[in-house]
Amino acid sequence: MLLIRCPYCGERPETEFHCGGEAHIARPDTPADISDADWGSFLYTRTNPKGLHAERWLHAHGCGRWFNALRDTVSDAFVTTYEMGTPRPDPISETAKA
């Protein structure tokens, strides 16, 4: 079972969390102005990288807050977690830190 560091509560077991898919996909401010194609890709197109992936997590059985995480999709390792609204950390310096 993974340990995930909630930015607000600290490390907790994976079962307390709910994954919400890829992070940093902002909802357009005025969806009406978006083309069908662009809206379709906002809805459905994801990067699915091999390696570091920024994703949204909810500490569902805890503080109830959403946050972002950088996870390595190959090793399953959480490189870091960070608060919603903050930019994606630089993965290289984060790896060096870990």
Binding site: H18, G20, A26, R27, R56, L58, A60, G64, R65, W66, M84, G85
Partner: peptide, 12 residues
């Protein structure tokens, strides 16, 4: 969860 998601992440 759906409501909290939008409240926290899209319309804080």
């Amino acid at each position: 969860r759906h409501m909290e998601d939008y409240l926290q992440t899209e319309w804080p």
